[in-house]
Structure formats: C-alpha cells, structure tokens
Design a protein around this nucleic acid. Structure first.
Lengths: 210, 210
DNA sequence: TCAAGGCTGTGACTTTGATCACACTTTAAT
DNA sequence: ATTAAAGTGTGATCAAAGTCACAGCCTTGA
C-alpha cells in the first residue's frame, strides 16, 4: 500500500468525486475542471492525527473525500466542545483563523482514516476571482453553512437536552451510528451522563437485538 | 413629513450609504452603482411594525439604512428567542425561508423607526450573476455572518450566563446601550431575572450616578 | 490473547439557573 | 398630564442538569 500506482488511482477517484460535488451547484467543463484541480493538494490522514491544531497558523481548508473528523474547541477549564463533525463531501477548517490567516483556536482531529483535498486561502481566492462560477459555488456553500448554524443556535436556545438529542438523531442519523455518544454530548452542550440517561421513545414493533 | 421632496432626499442619502457599505468590500464605478441601485426598493418602517412575520412567505432580504430591528423565534411554549439584533448597515431576513422561498419561521420587528432597502431573491441572484463583484460582496457578507455565528455557538456551549453577558457587552456595547435588557436575555438564552442579577464588575473610580 | 484504555450506564448528591410573585420605575400614547 | 404598558430588581422556592464515583463492556494494539 501507499505505492505510487494506488495513490494515483485514488487521487483520480477523489478528483472525480470533487467534480461531482461541485456540479451539484454548478456545471463545469472539462477544461475548467482541469484548471480547478490544480489548486488542490491531496493529503492522507490517519486516525487520531491532527488536521489543525490550536495555536498553529491555519493555512488551508479541506474537502473530505472520505473519512471522519471532529472540530472542537477546548475551553479554559479543559472541557471540549464540538463545533462540527465532518464526513465525506464536507468542507472543514477553522474558518475564522483561515480567513484572517491567524492561529487556530480549535482542533480538528481525524476519527476514521481519511483522504482530503486541501486548498490554501490564496488558492481559494484566486479560484473565486478567476472563475465566477467558483465564487458562486463558495457562496452557496457558506450560505448553507450559515443557515445550518442558525438552526443550531435556535436549537441551543429553545430546546432541552432530550429534544436536542432527538432532533440531532433525525438530522444526522449517520453520525449517531458512526460516532461515540460522548462526542455527541459535547456537540449538543450536555454532559455524557445526561445524554446516557435519555432513552429513545420506543417505536412500533419488537426492539431490535443484534 | 413624508412629502415627495424629503423622501427623495433621504432616498439619495440611503443609496449613498449603501454604496459606501458595498465599497468596504469592493469598489464600484458610477455606472455599476447606477445598475445596482435599480434592484433595491426603499421602505420606511415604524416602531412595532413587522418586517417579516412567521407563517408568511419571505420575499425579500433587507439592508438597514437606519433604525433597529430584532429577529426572533417563538417556540411551542410561547417563549421568544432572539436570533439577531440589526442596526444600521446590517442585512437581515429569515434567510432559510428567503433562500427556499418558503414561509418564515421567525418574526422580525422594528424597535426604532427605520429606513430599509429591500431586495428580492430574484434581484439578488441576478445581481450576483450579472456582476461578479456583487457575487463576491455577498460571499464576503455571508462568510462574516458564518464566523460570527460560529463564535456565538462556542459561547453558548462553553460559557455560563455571566460570561456570555460580559462577552456580549464587549462585542456589542452599542446594543447594550440601546436595547432593553430583557431582549438581551432572550438573545443570550437566559431568563431576564438571571440577567438582572448579574452585576458588572466594578472598575476603578467612583460608580457613575446620573 | 490479554492488558490497557476508551466508552457507556447508573446511583447519590450538588449546583445553577428557571420560575413565581411582587414592588418599583421608566416610557409611551392619548 | 395622566394612565397604561413595558421594563427592571429582588426574594423564595424548585427542578433540571451537572458532577462524582464506580462497575461492566467493548476495542484495539502489542
């Protein structure tokens, strides 16, 4: 493994996947995509490895071809608070630090072996200014991030732990399946004990035993 | 008041202000601005008037030339939760409903007599697609909204009421001055009684009596 | 394959902030 | 100018969720 051939092969596959991802927003010609591709750099990340570490300059944002990450903030008392879980096809960085080219205040850690494509701020802004459609693409992406965060703020303001957990389960069933509950507690802003005491409403049929 | 001359006069002033606002992000030529202007419609809003009402279609977003608004969500139990205070030079709408052209889930109410410039979704997208620099402008705006919301999420996850209120006072002294505390409590996700029991740290010198 | 570490559940106790109640003050509207 | 409505402060009580402690289970990696 990790020989040139396989790396090249997955590289091509990832790039195709990125193209599909972009084309969910805007079509791109073959020539345009050849141009776009060149701005990205592939990176392989292993479990437990940091993608971004608090205190270090944030040079890139990342598009996840596959794998799982969590982005979290560590407060003064040492508690961790999760800002984002990122699965394949999502974008991720400490955007505040990235856009201002400053040191990260958050950590991003790989939770399942991953492949990502990285983009420097310079590359991103060049891409956006050279290709109007990429500017549009990035605008659409940040817009949906904005509305998703707004939703999360409403949830934090209006709902109790049980309601938040249930809503989370409906919105992100995949994450509930793949990620340890203690991290979900950190995302929802509740203690892992409280989350552990929330028991799902029993739906029709016999409980599933495996 | 409200005669043609004064309306026209303030209209011109507001448009000049909008131009300055846009030029904080990107320069625009006279011709370009003439083109941009035409997409906006001026609206005068009085205190207590709804700009957007839950359950109604959201046709526009608004740029505030002057005045103050609050955007809030009313939960099932009737409690109100504030999403945003908007002062002059800010943009505001129920963006989720606006982008999806659906009914609002939130209310936006005028708190101080205001003048706003409205933009339909169609106008906004046309502006963005006709002028690359306006696409850029909108991207920059939503990006800073995104990072601001991220900051608020961290604050809700990590900080207790006292810390949140103090941070709010540092970030938005203007709002603390102009807006009743009970609304600030609704923004911070705490009860007005708890907020009222938070007393500012006494800084050097004799307490100010007026 | 077995030891160590991470994850989860649950009981006992504590703390924080919500709620309720009421008085007082300021603001706005006629 | 006066009356109603909105906003604020504060005490008493309560409940929800946090914290601490510990036991049992899974993973995982040497």
């Amino acid at each position: 493994m990790f020989n040139t051939t396989s790396l090249l092969a997955t590289h091509i596959l990832d790039m195709e996947k990125l193209r599909k991802h972009i084309e969910e927003i805007t079509p791109v010609s073959d020539d345009e995509f050849e141009y776009i591709k060149a701005f990205f750099t592939k990176k392989r990340v292993r479990k437990h490895q940091f993608l971004i570490q608090a205190g270090e300059k944030v040079a890139c944002e990342y598009w996840i071809a596959n794998g799982v990450f969590r982005a979290f903030y560590t407060d003064e008392t040492g508690r961790e608070h999760i800002l984002q879980f990122a699965l394949e096809n999502s974008w991720l960085s400490d955007y505040n630090a990235f856009f201002h080219q400053t040191e990260s205040t958050m950590n991003i850690i790989c939770m399942e072996e991953a492949e990502v494509l990285s983009l420097t701020l310079h590359a991103r802004e060049k891409l956006a200014s050279d290709l109007h459609k990429m500017e549009h693409f990035f605008r659409m992406k940040v817009t949906s991030g904005y509305t998703a965060q707004q939703h999360r703020i409403i949830s934090l303001l209006c709902r109790n732990p049980k309601e938040r957990y249930e809503e989370f389960g409906i919105l992100f069933p995949e994450i509930v399946r793949r990620i340890p509950k203690k991290y979900i507690a950190e995302y929802l802003g509740i203690s892992r004990e409280t989350l552990s005491r929330i028991h799902p409403v029993q739906r029709r049929g016999i409980p599933v035993k495996q």
